[in-house]
Every structure is written in structure tokens, then in C-alpha cells.
Simulated scan of single mutants.
Amino acid sequence: MGLLTDQQLHNLAMNLVGKDLEELGYEFLAVNSKKSKNPQFVATKEKKLIFVVVRAVNYPDNPVLYDEELMGKVSKHGINYEAKTFYAGVGVANSVSYELPVDSEQDYVLNYTGLIEIK
């Protein structure tokens, strides 16, 4: 199989964040698995709308740091819909050695601390 592509890494992150949103009681209104389309999730809970931007972040980059310009744009878009905007960064690393790329033949580690609200 070989090294995971950026889209495959993004899909891992999407699956983790999607499960987290479900466990938090959110219902999905829209899901876009393309990394280039933002937000990836539009969801609702108790009539409150949220936008969630998901990013897979390769080690050693910090998954809680985000592109402020991008998140500002998504947040402004969210305000038009009375939606709160969140960033969900998922750190991804090869479990054999964090220095190695993520490979489909080896286990990997995910580092996700939850949703970060953008204000």
C-alpha cells in the first residue's frame, strides 16, 4: 500500500472528528471531505449551528495551531448563518517512529484534543 496521501490523512482526521461530534450529540447537515472546501462539517445541536474546519497535521507540527486568516474567513461566513465556528486539528504520526511518514503498513498515532472555538 505505502505512504498515506494528504487526502487519506485528512480522511482519518475527518472520521475521528465526526465520531467526536456524534458523541457530543450533533446532527450533520453537511459534510465535505475535501480539504480545500471549508468548513468540512456543518452540524446542529439544540437548534444551534456550528461550522467545523478539520485539518490533519503531520508530526512535528502542533495540531492546535491553525491558519488564523482562513479561520477568520470561515468564522465571518459562520456569523452570517448565526453559527459558531470551530477548528479541529488532528495530529498524525507513525507509531514506530514519529520521524517516519505515516504508512498504511504500520500503526499510527492520532493526537486530538477536541474542538477549538474561533471567536
Rank of each mutant, 00 (worst) to 15 (best):
N15T: 02
N15V: 00
L16Q: 09
V17W: 03
V17S: 06
G18A: 15
G18F: 02
K19V: 03
K19E: 12
D20Q: 11
D20E: 13
L21W: 02
E22Q: 15
E22K: 15
E22F: 06
E22V: 04
E23Q: 14
L24I: 00
L24M: 13
L24D: 12
L24F: 06
Y26F: 11
Y26A: 09
Y26L: 09
E27S: 13
E27Y: 06
F28A: 10
L29R: 13
L29S: 08
A30H: 14
V31G: 00
V31L: 10
N32T: 00
N32W: 01
K34P: 00
K34E: 10
K35G: 06
S36G: 06
K37T: 09
K37Y: 05
N38G: 00
N38R: 14
Q40K: 09
Q40D: 08
F41N: 10
F41P: 05
V42N: 01
T44K: 12
K45H: 10
K45C: 04
E46P: 01
E46R: 07
E46L: 10
K47P: 00
K47W: 00
L49M: 09
L49D: 02
I50D: 03
I50H: 07
F51V: 01
F51G: 05
V52M: 02
V53W: 01
V54S: 07
R55C: 06
R55D: 13
A56R: 08
V57E: 10
N58D: 12
N58A: 15
Y59D: 13
P60Q: 13
P60R: 13
N62Y: 12
N62F: 12
P63Y: 11
P63Q: 05
V64T: 15
V64Y: 14
Y66K: 08
D67V: 03
D67E: 12
D67C: 09
D67N: 15
E68T: 13
E68Y: 13
E68P: 02
